[in-house]
Nucleic acid binder design. Structure first.
Lengths: 339, 339
DNA sequence: GATATCCGTCGAAGCGCTTCGACGTCGGCC
DNA sequence: GGCCGACGTCGAAGCGCTTCGACGGATATC
């Protein structure tokens, strides 16, 4: 193993000088710096991470904590994770992956052993058991999602309220007067998942505000149950011509169920989804959608975390504005339906 | 911060004794051990990971390296990752997530800086640029997937050849004589991805061996291109009654395209897929399928890695046997088709 | 009963790095 | 021309841990 002493000897300087070249914490003459850097290159020197963290009290590693329940969609989770890693690398940090099945103790462990300098919590729920632990730890942290009591915590998320609102506004602008939301499975609402509830609130409030009739119903993910839900909806509320779907897994089944009922999209009914672009584009017809900006959220949370590590103050809540992409699944209300 | 010296003082022993209690590397009397352990609990001691890695030359962290191209399916990747983390924790190790967009240098960095003791490479391709780097590093490693020259490397994967074979055997046992494989997108074959090619080989060889007519074609993921492929297949080979699908993303579109052609599943045509159970069960009708045992592969690779870290010798290749689950999408060949 | 053996514990060295204070040198300033 | 501050570099201490050799005491061996 090549050590800092080897580099120092090779360059004809003291070890501390090598350290200062690397950290930039003291001025070093350009000629010395060049000499040191070239020795580093020649010898293939890589500082020992453990030694560095012991001496400096900084590991340059952040923890990425996966959600408790994998109710959330795996692909979106992965997009988050990739964005977090990529962004962390831009700040010269690495990412330790922590699963939640260790529970809050996993958090304490990686923090107390000084493995990580800071923590990103993914997919935070309203009553998340990891949050109290986070509070008693002294490490900077960022949450993706909002808990019930976000005071003093830094949280990042898509603005789901605005996302729900944007969908309704889009449908309203096309002339639709009767809209429905097919949401997450009932269990997701029951356990108080913030993003599902906020989408529903945005949907209902906006329908109300714009004078539309709006109905929000939960929706399971299995094909047959989806079919039943769609059936119930179309039977009881046949006047609905605008559908908002906030359930990525059920998108396919919902489209199939609509077809089975003889409702053509977008001729008879317009559909707008809240889901990744990928999903929206793989459907026939391609869905107008509000995307979950996983990359953006991941990158943003790491940037905030780095600023906190620098001692900077950052805003408590960062809500990323929804962006609605219009595709083939929404159209103006046909004349016959005008209400 | 609580240090080993604090614990030693509290328990009335030497720091080295505390260390030996924790590591078990020397005999310690039961009374001393109890006293030390209770001090550890009372004080809330967590060993400093950096100090430990500096002194012992072991970080108790492994690297999990994501694939170069995310051509692979994100959810499966995430399942792998979760399984790897969970298993690593059982061996008292943590997991550092490394993305491949750093390239092979990322590998060198985490290895040379002693951040990680060992490396798991996910989704290895036939000509994977990370493999040569792995060879010049001295760290133990395990690959998920097989490169072109796997000599001396430890590789784990589903046995895709057998998976392809199992699908054909299943169809053959139901009386089907004309089978087709709808595989990965052409680009995947072109860049020499092992699992796609081995599935195709298993499919073709077995069809041949059992005297079936078998045709393998690549298949894009976009709905309209899938429809075109299915159309071409059914038009040119109308006698096909057994379909093997090895393209998770296209499953839905393929089913839709079959329906559009008036082919009922499984009455007119049987379909068996190679995909996660989740996908198979979310389709209508539920698909008979060979699953990609992500959890098993992830767990297995970590177990092997730990054995290598202990200096044990492990087999070069571990192929996990495919398990075919029969669901509603396959049925006996109708009498009319008997060939 | 003396010697060899093992068990349980201690003390000290050292892992590779950062950082602080010290020191020599130079230029600017009155 | 002497003083001061800034600059560039060095040396040493110390971060918290593991591990090796040493050592006293109990146990086994002849």
């Amino acid at each position: 193993m090549v050590t800092i002493t080897d580099v120092a000897r090779h360059a004809g300087v003291a070890p501390s000088t090598v350290s200062y070249v690397l950290s930039g914490k003291r001025a070093i003459s350009s000629t010395t710096r060049q000499r040191v850097l070239s020795s580093i290159r020649v010898l293939g020197y890589h500082p020992h991470a453990g030694a560095r963290s012991l001496a400096s009290n900084r590991s340059n590693v952040i923890a990425l904590v996966l959600p408790l329940r994998s109710g959330m969609h795996l692909p979106v989770l992965m997009q988050f994770a990739i964005a977090v890693v990529t962004t962390a690398r831009q700040y010269d940090h690495d990412v330790l992956l922590v699963t939640a099945d260790e529970g809050p103790d996993g958090l304490r462990r990686v923090a107390a052993s000084a493995m990580v300098d800071a923590i990103v919590l993914m997919d935070v729920e309203l009553h998340d058991t990891r949050v109290p632990m986070l509070r008693e730890l002294d490490r900077p942290s960022v949450l993706i999602g909002f808990p019930a009591e976000p005071d003093g915590l830094t949280c990042v998320d898509l603005d789901f309220f605005q996302a729900g609102a944007a969908c309704v506004e889009h449908l309203a602008s096309l002339g639709h007067r009767h809209v429905a939301l097919l949401g997450a499975p009932p269990a997701v609402y029951e356990r108080g998942t913030g993003f599902a509830q906020r989408t529903r609130a945005g949907f209902l409030d906006t329908a109300d505000r714009l004078g539309l009739s709006g109905i929000a119903i939960a929706c399971e993910e299995e094909t047959d149950q989806v079919a039943a839900s769609v059936h119930a909806l179309l039977t009881r509320q046949p006047e609905v011509t605008g559908l908002v779907v906030h359930n990525e897994a059920a998108v396919g089944s919902i489209m199939a169920a609509l077809a089975a009922h003889g409702r053509r999209v977008p001729d008879d009914i317009s559909v707008v989804a809240i889901c990744p672009d990928e999903t929206a584009e793989r459907t026939e017809p391609a869905l107008s959608s509000v995307l979950i900006p996983a990359e953006e959220v991941g990158a943003q949370s790491v940037s905030l975390l780095m600023r906190k590590l620098e001692g900077e103050l950052v805003p408590d809540a960062s809500l990323l504005a929804p962006r609605l992409t219009v595709r083939a699944s929404t159209a103006a209300l046909p004349a016959g339906h005008a209400g």
